[in-house]
Write a protein that binds this DNA or RNA. Structure first.
Length: 1053
RNA sequence: GGGCCUGUAGCUCAGCUCGGUUAGAGCGCUUCCCUGAUAAGGAAGAGGUCGAUGGUUCAAGUCCAUCCAGGCCCA
């Protein structure tokens, strides 16, 4: 016969987790969970690869917990859920990390001096190092994902897949070279990422100039009007290409001081102040479209330009509402220029100086050109006004040079060409929460702009385009290569084993298939977000390798990341899927809120409020952190995490659960009980057992439904409530049956804990597996050797008893009221009372066995019905009040509800209540009209008067008879002594089943009580003898001065 | 500047889909009580203009509008 291993009530959860981890490794549980589900329906999940550029933080744990829960849940439901880890290896974040480590401050110059081969080798090392830490994190937190077969975006097969996809896009004519405006440091010779730019903002004072652009066509020209244009970057006027106005803003043509100017109507007062203006006419901005003007400078050639265009981004907050456009130096300007097919002319060279051949500004640093430009405008009568303007402007965080927004040639994917397809794909995607779909994400798609794909950097997937030398510039032939094998064929050398990174790939040249001249690779690498978005196929190396596996697992049924990925991974996945396969790569997406610190701030290195996940694991356990993330609030709202929240999880949920199991083991072993022991059929078990099972199956249904809807918090609430019900009601009320080894109670609790363990397993995989091991596996080797290999519990509708649930809820409410009444009267529960009287709807239908629980919890000898109408049952003790039930009345009476409610209040409550009780209805008078109301329309409360301890709430009343007889008092003393002896047993470390001998000495009422109550006392404290008198052995005495009592005890044997 | 999310007790959060008159729970605090598993449990108390204003309605934390604050993303 196998006994359960003893389960200490106190447990070191982090230590336990390490043991469980070792067992998972030994038994290869994760791999077996996949193997055993291999024939089940496939449920596909894609892992979003974290960027391996720093230590993993607590926010990484968040997404990974959710990415673990749902696959575990689905696996238990019989689905096959393969999951492969992935690492995002490329990109500027990695480069910056390495630059910092190498002590570089000079940007690209330092890297090139160091050597690209060496630099990229350092990047690779850095990635490998950080992936090691992510592996540790992943394992420790219990995130089951295949780490051995992880995809790395820097591996050659992955890069080849990415190339293949780019070639598909290229072949569709959607991968093109164009210009892109980026914040650019002219000293370092590099563009800066947003993140870098954000670090270098500070206030500077620039000239703010209003310039006249005389109109040269149309009716405005006849008026001799000039557009009044405002800018804070006079140096960009050299390359003025157009003027933008807002189509919906009203523009005014005014005569001021004898000249005619065009200004946005809302800005007239601001621009001209007190100067009198004469409004000649007004027009919508859209009417100004294509109005030509005489440009401010004629130093560079800009063909086909210089007219008014429309742009929604124009505001009337500052300036004149007419915005000067210089497409090479402004992102919005460039967009406008694109739409109108305007040329992008850039007179500033890469070092930030104007082309030396230009008059006026030739060779000047761009900022230094402001002064001569403003002077020249003034000299030519073009300057309307000049002011100084202080604003925030970005500078290079490395060298403090003012940044220039600068158009660099760049490679684009024309995502705008497939925008409609993207919108359609989004339409059929299920978003959690739903609002993202048409809100944040839908919005982003609607404003889709072409994807700027290239980066002028080093550590990234090289753009697989080779340009021939046959024709200069635009006319050169381009060759896009889709694999190393293809590259081998084109280059005539075997490069299938080449590292496809810079600088090695740069050395591969090929013969242009069109003109036979030598072609070399373009220098750019690609945006690492493209790498990540390629994972659906690239994780397999598809289609070059594992094409079938890819086909089977596309698209994913489920992906899950935090909300910042809407414009990141969620977008690139959908965009690449749609571009390459004409189908988004996922069907359902769970979008998480962010984890914040205890002050509600985002966690960031900068603020120093980052919580080290490993410390949290060792302090509270991974289960605690998992439960908090999953159940501490809605998945999609942001939540604050801290030690205190985790301590609460441990105490309230994990330890309560553990202790319930520990309790079961204690009494199962004490009574030689096993799961195989005979137990009564469900229907023959006591109501309390049937209630526990009924609640259990209601919870199974609730958790199942909640997880189906990806609402882990809702599931967690149901589970936590059940843990509490089980521990603090079922076990509490059943204790005596456990002491007696009642097989019904033991079987019921075992079943409840066992099913609960399976429900909890995907949430808190460690502690549940340990409980499963001890409670199930140890005593039945035929069961799977991990809870994670078990099936998800099925709901047994036959066990769900709704009426019983309602009855028990009433019992618990009445107990609460009784306790409140006792507390109010300052009569402790240990003091038995003769009776309690109850008045509550449903009380008459409450089965006797359930009434017993009320009596027992309240320690009263009898329960009576409080009936104000019947003499001798408390009628003289109660006040009756009747209140309208608005919900019921509102449906029937609508607008007259308050009048009916008032009528009910005006009617004598005793009469009303009596009528409702005897006749089932009552009549009240509303505005002289008789209205019939039923029992549901009125909430009757009966409140006993003085002399009783009473508590009432929501129409339910419990009254305690406080009169104490000597017999009751003595029974109270016995119960007091029982508790003291129990406390002494516990303090001396006796086992719960140890028998003892007991001696006592006392006087007066205490002596009387103990003499009378020796038998119950002996039974309760497991005493084989209860002796009045001192022991003759030297035992420690237990004095109780309040009772005039001293007792002694010792264990037998 | 735009879009979205959030705002309920000192703190963490339910409740809002589908409106019902005493707005709940946990943590923390005070006082009691219970204890034959528990780091637990229970009762009472203190603690709320349910972000603000207006509207719809017999009735608004809940529906509508506007505004404010914080967050996220974008500019």
């Amino acid at each position: 016969m196998r006994a359960f291993r003893p389960m200490p009530p106190q447990v070191d959860l982090p230590a336990l987790e390490h043991e469980v981890l070792a067992r998972w490794r030994d038994r290869d549980v994760f791999a077996r969970s996949l193997k055993q589900s291999a024939d089940g329906p496939l449920w596909t999940f894609f892992e979003g690869p974290p960027t391996a550029n720093g230590k993993p933080g607590t926010h990484h744990v968040e997404a990974r917990v959710f990415k673990d829960l749902f696959p575990r849940y689905r696996t238990m439901k019989g689905f096959h859920v393969p999951r492969r880890a992935g690492w995002d290896c490329h990109g500027l974040p990695v480069e910056l990390e390495v630059e910092k480590r190498l002590g570089f401050t000079g940007g690209k110059k330092d890297i090139e001096a160091y050597g690209i081969a060496e630099f990229n080798a350092r990047c690779r090392e850095s990635v490998e190092e950080h992936v090691d830490e992510f592996n540790r994190l992943t394992e420790r937190m219990g995130y089951w994902v295949d780490l051995d077969e992880a995809y790395w975006t820097m591996n050659a097969p992955y890069v080849e897949s990415v190339w293949w996809s780019l070639k598909q896009i290229y072949d569709k004519g959607l991968l093109v070279q164009d210009h892109r405006v980026t914040p650019y440091c002219p000293r370092c010779g590099t563009g800066l990422s947003d993140h870098e730019v954000a670090q270098g903002y500070y206030d500077v004072t620039d000239p703010s100039v209003f310039v006249r652009f005389p109109v040269t066509s149309g009716p405005l020209a006849e008026l001799g009007a000039a557009l009044l244009v405002w800018t804070t970057t006079p140096w960009t006027l050299i390359s003025n290409t157009a003027v933008a106005v807002h189509p919906a803003v009203t523009y005014t043509v005014v005569r001021v001081d004898g000249e005619v100017l065009v200004v946005a109507e809302p800005l007239v007062a601001k621009v001209f102040g007190d100067t009198p203006v004469e409004v000649l006419r007004t027009m919508a901005g859209s009417e100004l479209e294509h109005t030509t003007y005489d440009r401010p400078f004629d130093l560079v050639d800009i063909p086909g330009a210089h007219y008014v265009g429309l742009a929604d981004y124009v505001t009337v907050d500052d300036g004149t509402g007419l915005v000067h456009q210089s497409p090479a130096f402004g992102a919005e300007d460039l967009l406008v220029a694109r739409r109108y097919g305007l040329p992008v002319v850039n007179p500033v060279t890469l070092d930030g100086h104007f082309d030396a051949s230009l008059p006026l500004v030739g060779g000047l640093f761009f900022k230094a050109a402001d002064a001569p430009i403003v002077a020249d405008l003034e000299a030519r009568g073009r300057l309307f006004r000049r002011e100084n303007y202080t604003h925030s402007y970005p500078h290079c965080w490395r060298c403090d040079t003012a940044l220039i927004y600068y158009a660099l040639p760049s490679w684009y994917i024309r995502t705008t060409e497939v925008k409609d397809r993207l919108l359609e794909e989004n339409k059929r995607t299920r978003w959690y929460p739903e609002t993202i779909k048409h809100g944040r994400y839908g919005d982003w798609l609607n404003n889709n702009i072409d994807w700027a794909l290239s980066r002028n950097r080093y550590w990234g997937t090289p753009l697989p385009i080779w340009r021939c030398s046959g024709n200069e510039g635009e006319g050169a032939h381009l060759t896009c290569v889709g694999s190393l094998a293809e590259l081998s064929a084109l280059s005539g050398t075997d490069v299938t084993h080449l590292d496809p990174h810079r600088p090695y790939i740069d050395d591969v040249t090929l013969t242009c298939p069109q003109c036979s001249t030598t072609a070399t690779r373009v220098p750019e690498v690609i945006d690492c977000w493209y790498d990540a978005g390629s994972m659906p196929f690239a994780q397999w190396g598809a289609p070059h390798r594992n094409a079938e596996e890819f086909e089977r697992a596309y698209p994913a049924q489920f992906i899950c990341e935090a909300i910042d990925q809407t414009r990141g991974w969620f977008y690139t996945l959908m965009a690449i899927g749609t571009l390459v396969f004409d189908r988004s790569s996922y069907e359902t997406v769970l979008c998480l809120g962010h984890i914040l610190d205890e002050q509600g701030r985002k966690m960031s290195k900068h603020l120093g409020n980052v919580l080290d996940p490993f410390e949290l694991f060792e302090r509270h356990g991974a289960d605690a952190l998992r439960w908090f993330m999953l159940c501490g609030g809605s998945p999609w709202s942001s939540r604050r995490v801290g030690d205190r929240a985790l301590e609460e999880v441990v105490r309230k949920v994990l330890l309560t659960y553990w202790n319930t199991a520990s309790f079961l083991v204690l009494y199962a072993n004490a009574n030689n009980w096993q799961p195989s022991s005979a137990a009564p059929h469900y229907s023959d078990r006591p109501a309390l057992d049937r209630w526990a099972l009924s609640q259990l199956h209601a919870v199974v249904a609730e958790v199942d439904a909640a997880l189906d809807d990806f609402d882990s918090a809702r599931a967690g609430r149901a589970l936590a409530a059940y843990v509490d019900d089980l521990s603090n009601w079922y076990v509490r009320r059943s204790r005596r049956r456990f002491w007696d080894g009642d097989p019904s109670a033991l079987a019921t609790l075992h079943e409840c804990v066992e099913v609960l363990t399976r429900l909890l397993a995907p949430f808190v995989p460690f502690v549940t597996d340990e409980v499963h091991e001890r409670l199930v596996r140890d005593v039945d080797p035929s069961v799977a050797d991990s809870v994670h290999l078990r099936a998800w519990p099925a709901v047994d509708d036959a066990l769900v008893d709704v009426e019983l649930g309602e009855h028990m809820a009433l019992v618990r409410r009445l107990v609460e009221l009784g306790r409140a009444a006792r507390a109010d009267a300052a009569v402790k529960t240990r003091q038995p009372l003769a009776r309690a009287m109850v008045s509550a709807p449903g009380w008459s239908r409450l089965p006797a066995v359930l009434r017993e629980h009320v009596a027992d919890e309240l320690n009263v000898r009898a329960l009576d019905t409080l009936d104000p109408a019947a003499a001798g049952t408390g009628g003289d003790l109660v006040d009756v009040t009747a209140k309208a039930n608005y919900r019921a009345l509102g449906k029937r009476f609508g607008q007259r509800t308050p009048a009916v409610a008032a009528a009910i209040a005006d009617t004598d409550a005793t009469v009303l209540a009596a009528a409702l009780r005897t006749g089932g209805s009552a009549t009240v008078t509303v505005d002289g009209e008789a209205v019939t109301v039923g029992p549901d329309d009125v909430v009757v409360s009966e409140t006993p008067r003085a002399g009783w301890a009473v508590a009432a709430a929501g129409g339910e009343t419990v009254a305690l008879d406080l009169e104490l007889t000597d017999e009751l008092r003595r029974a109270g003393v016995v119960r007091e002594v029982i508790r003291l002896v129990q406390e002494a047993r516990k303090a001396q470390g006796f086992d719960v089943s140890d028998r003892i001998e007991l001696w006592w000495e006392a006087e007066g009422e205490t002596a009387e009580a103990l003499a009378e109550g020796a038998r119950p006392l002996a039974g309760e404290v497991l005493a084989t003898t209860v002796t009045h008198g001192r022991p003759n052995a030297p035992l420690a005495d237990h004095p109780v001065p309040e009772l005039g009592l001293t007792f002694w005890l010792r264990p037998i044997g």
